[in-house]
């Protein structure tokens, strides 16, 4: 770790000022400290934001409001989460470990860095760390990498589970920064790697996530998060799917679907949602719709199985959601 100073921000305003002057926010620290120890992250000034009043979780009418500093574990078990958007709780407890969920903030969760092993290794080329240095994963170990939204420069997946659920539910986030406040969909937080894989998100310098709003959805209880992995727990998703469906006598009136482990960012599947509209919740129908998810997929040497696994995971997630009374 390179030496740094750390100061606690007494207010959001002061935190933003300190960040505008070049400081880095730290909340749970589970990503940042890990990567600082590898010297992948090299901040020289940390702003501890844990004292800021952003830990709230509450309902506003049908909407679920989550403060950016609420911990994963708190959000997962909160009565309003379970009542309004149970799939968020489900996605949260499938992530990381109980200890890490007690530490990691919701804002930090959304801003996790990618899990590509080469990204962590300073002695391996990585376009995300050093633009133009090359991608080690494309011809190396890439079993966990994305098949959608990749570029020749980067194919790493975003590791968050809850982001997948939030994207499916069309959650928005409120951020504050030196230029003021703005609100935008969580989905728009993430960039595709393209020719600029070093730019992962759309936050402006000094911007701080303050709150996540998950709009109410009449059918939000008919939802499942299915995470597929070789180990039963404490492993990143090979493929994960958040499925939310509105059923009317066995016919899908509307569906929301997003997947993790498949794309370079949490991946909403609008075309599949469209294809499901008005169809019966039956295996063959679901399979036909799910297959469209991998159109244009670009697998690498080690992740071709995801082209098969992704549609199957989607089908199962939809079926599981459909089984909910």
């Amino acid at each position: 770790m390179i030496p740094f100073t750390i100061t606690q921000a007494p207010s959001t305003h002061e935190a933003i000022q300190a960040a505008a002057a070049g400081g880095r926010y730290i909340a749970g620290g589970t990503t940042l400290i890990d990567l600082m120890r590898e010297e992948v992250e090299r901040p020289d000034r940390l702003i501890d934001i844990n004292a800021l009043p952003l830990k709230h979780i509450r309902a506003e009418g049908p909407d679920l409001i989550i403060g950016a500093l609420a911990r994963m574990s708190e959000v997962a078990v909160h009565p309003d989460t379970r009542r309004l958007h149970p799939v968020i709780g489900e996605a949260l407890i499938e992530g990381a470990s109980p200890q890490l969920r007690n530490m990691a903030s919701m804002g930090g969760n959304l801003l996790q860095r990618v899990r590509c092993p080469y990204f962590r290794m300073l002695d391996a080329p990585c376009n995300k760390r050093i633009p133009g240095s090359g991608c080690s994963a494309i011809d190396g170990l890439n079993i966990g990498h994305a098949i959608l939204g990749t570029s020749d420069q980067c194919a790493a997946t975003h590791p968050s589970d809850v982001a997948v659920a939030l994207v499916a539910l069309e959650a928005t986030m409120r951020v504050q920064g030196p230029q003021g406040e703005r609100t935008f969909p969580v989905e728009e937080l993430y960039r595709l790697p393209g020719d600029t894989p070093h730019l992962e998100h759309t936050l402006l310098p000094g911007e701080l996530i303050v709150e996540i709003r998950v709009p109410g959805l009449s059918y939000s209880r008919r939802a499942r998060y299915l995470k597929v992995r070789d180990r039963a727990s404490y492993e990143f998703a090979l493929i994960a799917a958040a499925a939310v469906i509105d059923l009317d006598g066995g016919v899908i009136r509307e569906a929301r679907l997003a997947v993790g482990g498949a794309g370079t960012r949490p991946w909403r599947l609008r075309a599949v949602e469209q294809a499901l509209k008005g169809k019966r919740l039956e295996r063959a129908t679901l399979e036909a719709a799910a297959r469209t998810a991998v159109e244009g997929a670009r697998p690498l040497s080690g992740n071709q199985y995801k082209v098969e696994l992704l549609p199957r995971t989607i089908v199962r997630a939809l079926e599981l959601a459909g089984e909910i009374a």
Binding site: I6, Q8, I26, G28, G29, T30, I33, D34, L46, D48, N50, S73, S97, P98, Q99, L100, N102, M103
Partner: peptide, 14 residues
């Protein structure tokens, strides 16, 4: 609350 002490800075726990 249970946490992993390797991924947190001592300086953050006054």
């Amino acid at each position: 609350k249970r946490i992993v002490s390797c991924l947190t800075l001592a300086a953050m726990h006054s």
